[in-house]
Design a protein around this nucleic acid. Sequence first.
RNA 1: UGCCGGAUCGUCUAAUGGUAGGACAACGGCCUUUGACGCCGUCUGUAGAGGUUCGAAUCCUCUUCCGGCAACCA
Length: 559
Amino acid sequence: MENTEKKSRNFIQEIIDEHNKINRFDKKVHTRFPPEPNGYLHIGHAQSICINFGIAEEYGGKTNLRFDDTNPTKEDIEYVESIKEDVKWLGFHWDGDVRFASDYFDRLYDFAVQLIKKGVAYVDSSTLEEIKEERGTPTEAGKESKYRNRPIEESLDLFERMKNGEFKDGEHVLRAKIDMSSPNMNMRDPIMYRIRHAHHHRTGDKWCIYPMYDWAHGQSDSIEGITHSICTLEFENHRPLYDWFIDQLGIHHPQQIEFARLNLNYTIMSKRKLLRLVEEGYVNGWDDPRMPTISGLRRRGYTPKAIRNFADRVGVAKRDAVSDVSLLEFSIREDLNQRARRAMAVLNPLKVVITNYYENKVEELEAVNNPQDETMGKRLVPFSREIYVEQHDFQEVPHRRFYRLTKGSEVRLRYAYIIKCEEVIKDENGNVIELHCTYDPETKSGGSSTKKVKGTIHWVSAKHAVNAEVRLYDRLFNAEFPEADKEKDFTEFINHDSLTVLKNCKIEPSLVSAKAGENYQFERNGYFCIDSKDSTEEHLVFNRTVTLRDSWAKISGKK
RNA sequence: UGCCGGAUCGUCUAAUGGUAGGACAACGGCCUUUGACGCCGUCUGUAGAGGUUCGAAUCCUCUUCCGGCAACCA
């Protein structure tokens, strides 16, 4: 029932529908995507981007891109640029200019003064340890600070002097005066400002006090007129605090809605752990094609459309969930099947001599560029007496359902002729190094011959072949849930065979013009793309995006 | 044992008091000049116990299990 599938609403859409019904936000929908510029975006962020931009699009609303840059010691402009690029690459357009929480530092400061004057915020001169001590535990109420009831004037004065740089880091903080015995830890007089004599990537040295995320975030949303602040589950407990700030200030009140973040099996999503993979050299950078980062997926050959389709299929809900990576793979295969140009490439070459073919003859054979899309046209592929085929397409002792080359068997060369394997040449160690075959001139592709064989294999003309390096990627972790074992570090589950480099691949000549950003299907092998960093005209490097579905692997695994 | 949230096929997600459906995965078959694609079919699920009701995944009660919360991080 496609019909019901289209009509079904996720819980966020239901909430917005209800708001529109009761006219809560004048039927407006304005969302935002608010990353902290302290790392690269991953597939989980991609889902959040799709939700925020997708929801707004659906309701004819807008989405802001705002960097929550409230901690100058962790953040960097490099990350700002990469995040902007990733959002654009996914195909989304933010409303107006990129925003920064730091754009609102002056207003946040004024808001804070307002709350101090109102008697609901105070400067606390306790030490870090004292504050920690007095916060209590989830099951035990906290204690009020001895500075909690200091006169408003005194707090005002101290806060201004904090701003003016009269104190060292950690000497004072500004706290909201709420309830030290609240069962919600976030309401136990949370810290609003801390002193940090640090250089900020945008405001420079203007400030030496910086707002905490909890104090900056809700007000930033309010200032921007956000209607629906969509965020992940861990901020659910913070919502009462955000609501409290907004209500105390009497400003525009967005509705926060929390959803369960995306998890994927056989990988990790924590920025901190991803950083470790990079720093400890398990991968070659944030955009290593094995990384679940958007930049890694892009380099691997994933398309924005595949990622967006994946996000749609996974859906959104409030329960914790781990999605199956096979769904991501399905999404990229589905997209690439439609758009990727086909080509022939032999990854592990085995030489074949067609003994009854003319010594110097070359035929240009017509090959379809994409059987799913006629408009992609055809190309010519050179054929000659010596070709390369895949080592795996020959079996000396064939599996009973093996339809390819074995001594005496016939197989079709894709877009060319049917050949028969006559002789197997081995080296002194007994390794098969060459096959001698004969071809049937009557069976030229497109001809009138009705001869049928069960197997068809790809090939590349030896004298026309171009050498290339091909990198095959496998999952980065062997364990389905690398973080689940509390005893072991996640790095113990790293798959040490996640990268296989093949340096002696033979590709058809038309592939020399391949450019980064294009997707190809190497027939019977998988989807591949030029590596955007390491490939050069002299030394082509291809990345395998994903294999084709391989039912032969299942058959051969049995017997 | 505090507060907040959650529990539907193997996985993800619908059904909002009226036939538990879809996608992925798996399995079987058809098709095939890609063992691809496509097509057809099969399998598997409401955490448990009570209750309300003609009728409960849905409402009520109790239980069990899972996640989050004690950075001057976000």
